[in-house]
Every structure is written in C-alpha cells, then in structure tokens.
Design a binder for these strands. Structure first.
Lengths: 195, 195, 195, 195
DNA sequence: AATGAATGAGGTTTCATTCAT
DNA sequence: AATGAATGAAACCTCATTCAT
C-alpha cells in the first residue's frame, strides 16, 4: 500500500474534520446513486442521499463531471495499489496477474456505479485519473515482463491489452440478464495465458 | 440475404414515397448525429441534419428512445442477415464465424453512432430488437455447432459468449486513443479458436 | 321553421353532394369529440372520427375556432327556430317560454360538446352567430312582452336575462357530480315566473 | 376569521422568508396573467410577471395544474372563512346569506383569473380544494337552516343550490358585453328569498 | 463551511395549419 | 376535392449550477 493520505479533489489542503467526512460521504453516495439511476442521476439525489445540501456537493466537486471523474480516479487508484502489492509478492507471475484481474473484476461487479461513471464521463475523467492509470499501466507492464520470462503468459501481451479486455469485460457487466461476467472473465484469462 | 423490404417502424403499412425517403433519411441522420454528439444528441439536430422538421421525426418515431431503438434493431437485423448468409455458404465453419465477426466489428467501428445508441438506449431498445437478437443467437448457435463438430472451435463456446465478447469489443472502440480495436478483435478470435 | 337550406360555413355556394355529406359528418364528429375530450380535442381526432383527412376538415372550416363557432351557431339557429315556432303557437305565453327553456336545457344537457365549444370559443364564435343570437333575442323579447301583458311573467324580465340565466345553467351542467341541472332549471324558471 | 398562517402548497413546513415571498408573488402573478390570457396562459409568462425564473414556479407548484388548483383552493378558503364569519355574526339569517353572496360575487367579478382557473382546471383542482369546499358547504347548510327557521329563505333551498347558482353566475361574468352580473346576482338572490 | 432556493438555457414533445401528392 | 405527411412555433418541464441566507 502506498498512499498514506487519501487524495482530495484538487488542492491537497487539509480539510476540517467535518468537511473530510462530507467529502467521503458524497463520494459514497455518488457510487450508490449512480449505480441505481445510471449516469442521468441528479446531483440533487446524490446530495439528498449524502444528507447534505447541493451547495456542499459543489463545494467539494466543481462539476458533475468532476465528481464522476473522482469516482473513476479512486477506482484506478485502488487497482494501481493492488498491482503494486502484487509486484511485492512472491509467486508464479501469471498467477499473480490472474489473481489481480479476478479481484478487480469482482470489485467492478460489486460496484455498478463505476460502470456508469466510466460510460458517461467524458475526457475529463480519464485526464483526472491520468497519473493513476499511468502507474497501473507501468506496474502491469512489469508484471507482464516477469510472466513473459517465466513463459506463462501469451508472449505478445501488453499492458494496454489487459486494460482493453478489462474495459470490455466491465462494460458488459449487467448489460443483459443472459450475460455472465464470470464466464467472460474466464475467457479473458484464457486468452492471456500462454499457449 | 433475407429481408426484401426495409422494415418500417411499427405497422408495416406501405408509406408514401416521400415518407419512406424521410424515414430513411432520419435514420441515417440519427446515425451520424449520435456518432458525433453522443447519446445526448438532440432530436432537433437529427431533424436539422435530415433536412426535415422535428415534427416529422416524431411522426416516424414517437420518442427519442424509439429512434435509438430502431437504430439498434437495424444493426441486429444486419448481423442476423449476415449470419444467415454465412450459414448458407460452404467453407471451414470456424473461418465462417471468424469472417462474420471481423465484418461485424468493422461495421461497428465505422458506425460509432450505434455504440452510443446501445449505451444510452434503455430496455426498450433491446425489447424492440428481440426478434433480431433471437435470430442472431439461433443462427450463431448453429454455426458454432458445425465448427464444434469440425473441431476448430473452442469446444465449450456458446452463442452468448460471442455476443458478450463482441459487446465488450464494441464498447471499447474509440474509448481511448491507445485502444486498438483490431488488436482487441484478434484476441477475441484467438480465444474462440480451438486449443 | 324558417331556414330552408342549412347555411354553410361562409360562402353559400352549393357543394357537391359528397362535400355536403362530409360537412355534416365533420360537424357531427366535432360534437362527439369535443364532448369527450373537451376544448383541447385535436382536429386530427375530429378528422379521424369523421373518417376524413385533416385537410378535408380544413377545407370546410378554415380554423379550429371556426369549427367551434359553427357548432355554436347551429345551436343558436336551433334555439331561434324553436322560439319562432313558439311565437306561432297559441297558449299561455309564460307556459310557452317555460316549454322553450326546458327543451333548450334538455338539448344542451344531451350535447356536452356545445358547452365545451362555448367555453373555449373566443370572440369569433359569438360574432359568427350574431345573426342567430339577434333573432333569438328579438323573438324572445316578443314572447316576454306577451307574457308581461298576461301578467304571468316577472314584470322586469328582459330577453338578456333569460340568455344570461341559461348560460349560467348550461355552464354548470356536468361540472360537478352533485350538481343537478334539472333542479337548477326549476330555480331559473321560478325566478322568471310572476309573483 | 380562522386561518392564521396563509396555507402553503403541500407540506406545511415553514419556508424561508424569500421563498414565502416568492410563493405569494407567483400566486398573485398567476391571478393576473390567467385573467389576461385565459387558461392558455403560459407558465413562462407567470414567471416573468412575478420576476422569477420558471424553475422557481415549478419548485413551488409541481405542475401548471397544481398552480391553477391552488388558486381555486385559496378562493374557496376565502369563501369558507367568510361563511364562518357570517355564522358568528348576529342579524337576520337571510340577510347574512345575501351579504355573503354579494361579497363573494364582487370578489369573483374583480378577479377574472379565478374564472379561467376554474374553467381549465381539471379534477385535481376540485380535489385539492375538497376540504375547503366541504367546509363551505357545511357552514352554508347551517346558515340556510337558520334562515329556514326564520322563514326568510325559500324553504327547499340546499347548500348545493347556492353553489350551483353561484357557479352559473360566475361563469357568465364578462362572457358577453351585454351580460350584467349585478342583474344576474339580483335574480339569484330573489330566487333564494322566501315566497 | 453549509444550505437549499433560485436560475434559465435547453430538452422533449404537441398540434394547428400547410401543401405536395 | 381529398388525403395525410410535413412543418415548426411554442408548450411544459428538468436539472446543472449559482448565490443569498
């Protein structure tokens, strides 16, 4: 685990205790509300769910998109942290990657909010999470390199491939009742595996 | 190819020549406009692009969602038709499936509108395209069965798997500049191939 | 009875037989449709009910208001004709007036369409029916004069009073379930009666 | 007089001072605008007249109909209050009723907005004002009972009769230039009077 | 710092009327 | 003369964002 203090929206000025609490509450509510109502959920609903006024939401996040983007950023932060943890562990390299992917998929599945956020968030979301994504990509590349040397991963796989496949996987979660993401996940892992 | 007359919105009453022309023009404009502006594109823009009044759009499609749904339906119609064509062809079964998938992916890539339509369209779109989807699934299942007998497809593949993978593929098209859908497509095909 | 040929919308040019038939059908449909849907009923609905195209409705009545106005005019025509008939009859003058009023009230009650027409129609309706109203008023004044001489009517009653009271009566018909227009009618007649 | 605090739209939660002010202003503007433009007046016009944004109107009254209904409700509230006041007064019972009716008629005549509101408002308006109407009816019944015992009212009159007659009176106010509501009012009062 | 009332541009949809067929 | 598809102004309402309290 690397991040000591959870990063704030923009300026990393320390907030008053209650402001910090509101910040977290709003994000948590955003997850819940966007999961329920999709990307068309209203800021008012997020505010109500969080038990604060709309103004407070806007004090913490300047626009709706910024709120969505922060949701995305946190998710990438988590994935990057997990990847770094994996890097520190011993074990068969491909198995580490597989474990990582399975955990991340499970997380995404349990948090439908993030899907909607990703779907509706425009450029900004990706920009705002640039650092986290870069880190995730870099660490993933290292894990891949190890697995390649061990010969347990499909040799031409690159970090972007995994990102792309995972994006595809997440976007089909819950899309249709007859779509089973665990099956989709198994197929993704199989294509990454050597031979 | 099976459909002789392009399908109309609901009641298959023959339209006046100009009405039919407008119908097509609106659909075509919807594709373009939704591709440009995303799912938030406005009906007014579609109308303007088609060179008709808003009222005309609403005469042909009672709601925005119905218009989106028709876009989806047409796409599934096309895919189902192609699948049926493949069924009639001679050739190595898996190669037929691969060809089908590649053509469909190329179509999707060249028509970003459909992605947005799928993303934003609610239940209705899927319901309205139920028949086409069912047909696509059924024909795909038959193609898979042949390939399975030929031993050229991963034995446990089902029609839904292909749908799921293709959905995932399409949803990542154009999402990020470093995502290359052709690479994604190659991976998908590899996972379907026998051992 | 005085009118030989039913008057047409504007120019009293003879219409082709089918046009005349359409004219009547449209008016009849207007009565029905406005009775059902109130003054917000759409011309399209009237057209559909009459089994003709909207264009045909507009050929016969230049605007929605003109159609409404014609409905009003016909009703006044009927009332004026009845009043003239009463004038020709023998009998106690007040009884004639009472009979007239009762018949007219019954007609209005059985034709809710006219209420809506009156409610929504603007100036035009009254202007368009000016002649009929003037006639009705004139004849009524004569009937009143007779009754006054017979001493059977409240002496200060004028024709306008009756119009006003009848307007009030009609406007409450069906307004509320606990409103009974027959009771209302009895009260109106009582106030007109002498002593 | 019974109502201490002017009634709010739905929940009787105390509003901020400015909100309360807006609430009143919107209602007042609605009266004016509907009086001018009839039932087709637009919410935008009401908002402009009140000097607030449309959104503010919709914050206070969820739909156009709800606004109309509130106008109706207030009027019935006023009438019910006046009736209750009359009940507390000493004096000849029929004279009290007459005074009541005359005041109410004068109020209605000076506030054309209410006529239009009543005309266009659907079921909702009447439902929303149910309590006020019930009260008005009940108090009126009591006043009638007293007058009946004093022998100064037409013996068979019921509260509904008065409502019906007043409805009829109000609906003819301003309908035609030659309609004189004071004359109409005199006739109504005469019919209620004993013998 | 928090609140929630206010804002108003902008979205979807309707419908009286016109006009090509 | 009849048809009904097309028109587009205008209606109602929403909701991201601002700002007075």
């Amino acid at each position: 685990m690397t991040t000591k203090t959870p990063p704030l929206s923009e300026t990393d000025r320390p907030l008053r205790a209650d402001a910090r609490r509101n910040h977290e509450r709003i994000l948590e509510s955003a997850r819940v509300v966007f999961a329920q109502a999709g990307p068309d959920a209203q800021i008012d609903d997020v505010a109500r769910h969080a038990g604060v006024g709309v103004g407070t939401v806007y004090r913490h996040f300047p626009t709706k998109e910024a709120l969505l983007a922060e949701l995305v950023r946190q998710k990438f932060r988590l994935f990057a942290d997990r990847a770094r943890d994996a890097l520190a562990k011993d074990g068969e390299p491909f198995a580490l990657i597989e474990g990582l992917i399975r955990r991340n998929a499970a997380t995404a599945a349990s948090d439908a909010g993030i899907q909607y956020a990703l779907a509706s968030a425009g450029e900004q979301a990706w920009t705002q999470a640039q650092a986290e994504q870069d880190e995730l990509l870099a660490v993933t590349a290292e894990l891949i390199e190890r697995a390649r040397r061990a010969g347990t991963i499909r040799p031409d796989v690159e970090a972007t491939d995994i990102g792309m496949l995972m994006c595809g996987l997440c976007s089909t979660m819950g899309a249709r009742p007859d779509f089973d993401w665990r099956r989709h996940l198994d197929l993704v892992i199989d294509v990454l595996r050597a031979g």
